[in-house]
């Protein structure tokens, strides 16, 4: 595969993953994950050993399943109704790649409306780092790590898929 073909495939994947998250297509989003998926949003930079830190979010595959189940109960107050939201992804860099795995960085900005309470428009800027793996011919996500610009500053409710 040429690097242009790979880039096109990675971009397609990232945009699809972003849309599934924005639209709360939870099953579709979950289907993009590998069985050992790691989801991490630290309260600082993306550095050090996640297991030794206290993070905003540090989900192994089982916990991300719980996260999705909780959203699916229809009783998740902080997502009733779901936040209307859209994210823009840019500055996509494919850092390293071999036949089986690609490490990708991208900047994002999410615009989220707090429709559940104050109606505030919330802006979430940051960088996402993805580890993508090829499983039975298709790309799957085995890690998504998020470094928020506001990581040190505390956050509003973050109960959507970032």
């Amino acid at each position: 595969m040429t690097s242009a073909e790979l880039r096109a495939e990675v971009e397609d994947f990232l945009y699809r993953e972003a849309r599934f998250a924005d639209e709360f297509l939870l099953e579709e989003w979950e289907a993009l994950l590998t069985d050992d998926f790691h989801y991490w949003v630290p309260a600082g930079r993306l550095e050090g050993d996640p297991s030794k830190q206290l993070a905003y979010l540090n989900d192994n595959r089982a916990r991300v399943a719980t996260r999705i189940r909780q959203l699916q109960t229809g009783k998740r107050l902080s997502q009733l109704p779901n936040s209307p939201m859209r994210r823009v992804i840019s500055n996509i860099e494919i850092e390293s790649t071999d036949d089986e795995e690609a490490l990708v960085k991208a900047n994002f900005v999410i615009y989220e409306l707090a429709a559940q309470s104050s109606g505030e428009l919330r802006v979430w800027p940051g960088q996402a780092q993805y580890r993508l793996e090829r499983v039975e011919g298709n790309l799957r996500m085995s890690a998504k790590w998020i470094e928020l610009v506001t990581a040190h500053a505390g956050q509003r409710n973050l109960t959507f898929l970032i």
Binding site: V41, S51, K52, Q53, L54, A55, Y56, L57, N58, R63, T66, R67, Q70, R76, L77, S78, A114, Q116, S117, S118, G154, Q155, R156, N157, L158, T159, I162
Partner: peptide
């Protein structure tokens, strides 16, 4: 650490719903 992340904070399973409740009381 993992128990804390699950229970408390902006992306947790519990106090996020307390936060939304507090915001609704405020409204």
């Amino acid at each position: 650490l993992r128990q804390t992340e699950a229970a408390v904070g902006p992306a947790s399973f519990i106090t996020t719903d307390d936060a939304i409740t507090a915001e609704r009381i405020q409204a």
